[in-house]
Write a protein that binds this DNA or RNA. Structure first.
Lengths: 196, 196
DNA sequence: ATCTATACTGACCAGTCAGTCATTATACTG
DNA sequence: CAGTATAATGACTGACTGGTCAGTATAGAT
């Protein structure tokens, strides 16, 4: 009784992630993913029901990685600010070479994928909400410790994503200036208003 | 000597904008756009070279609208902060019913559209850069008037886009909480750190 | 070693849709 | 009004790709 290989599944996931980052979902061919994973095209369908299913797999996989980073850092003994900073830096480190991956995270980008939206909603949105909850928890901790202003932790978590996004844009090929990603985090922390 | 109708061109652009916002570029059929615009499918090709050309047209059109709003507001006699706030509110007002439009603005989302990326680069990126320059000018003004911290205006402009994005997410169907868009702007202005 | 059940393969197929173009419609001119 | 040139039409076409499945390969059991 032969087993499907976890190894092969991961190879397909990784190949799909790479291709989706390079080209986007719609310009990604199953054939390309298969070739990059070193399997036959039909093999992809042994592990994933169809193309949208593969996409959902990739997105959940990415979000779980992002959450793992948060969890590891949340366990450290340092201030909430330092924790947010570390999550930020770690994420930047991971995605700097593939900024397009961020589109996997933003849901309104995924309105685009109408064919998978119901499935996306059922299987990815819960994960994404957990990601935001993880970030919210860090913010809540900071509020309780008097480090952060009294703001909605949920919105702050979402704004953190926006700041992360801006960070990637700020160093990107097309819109980049003389920035480092940390400057975007600085704006997130301190705002643009001058204190009086 | 018959002329092509500007009216018809705009109808096609508007229809394409609506469909792209509702479904994304790849789930948008030329047939759907034509029907929504009240023209035949082949007519679309009288005004736009091909599908990517239509997409570029829509994106440039949206960016120009966003810029018009900035320009109008920049002319008013009020503080730089108030100006940014008004741009923010006006944009929110325009896009609240179609948050997906924001994907037209963020370039790494458009890496997805490999078929149009070179064309996009040549025709849309210059407009997008101008949009960011317009915002940067407002920020620069605020810095000179002592209202804003000494930060890179360019990065602040990008962060403004990120904050705008977060605002839309914060009130969205999937990730929304009890927020108003203005709260995201508040975070952009004052950050999350508590002042000491 | 043989047998079995499942993994794996890749040529094939059907459906889709962007783009085409022969035909028709219509605005404009004299 | 007739003629002309261009706009507009929509059925058709061909390229493409996701998914299928008959055939092959192979791991595991006996």
């Amino acid at each position: 009784m032969r087993q499907k290989s976890t190894e092969r599944r991961n190879a397909i996931l990784q190949a799909a992630f790479n291709t989706v980052c390079a080209r986007g979902y719609y310009e990604t061919r199953i054939d390309d993913v298969a070739r990059a994973a070193g399997v036959a095209k039909g093999t992809v369908y042994l592990y994933f029901k169809d193309k949208p299913d593969l996409y959902v797999g990739v997105t959940v996989w990415l979000i779980n990685q992002a959450r793992t980073i948060i969890k590891d850092i949340a366990r450290q003994q340092c201030s909430p600010s330092a924790k947010l900073q570390q999550v930020f830096s770690s994420w930047v480190e991971h995605l700097l070479s593939r900024p397009t991956a961020i589109s996997l995270i933003f849901p309104e980008m995924n309105y685009h994928h109408c064919a998978i939206t119901p499935r996306f909603r059922q299987r990815v949105m819960p994960e994404l909400k957990k990601l935001i909850d993880d970030l919210s928890a860090l913010v809540r901790d900071g509020i309780q410790k008097g480090e952060f202003r009294k703001i909605d932790p949920h919105l702050a978590a979402i704004s953190f994503l926006g700041a992360f996004h801006a960070a990637l844009l700020g160093v990107s090929r097309y819109l980049g200036g003389k920035n480092t990603p940390e400057r975007a985090l600085d704006i997130f922390f301190y705002g643009i208003r001058r204190s009086v």
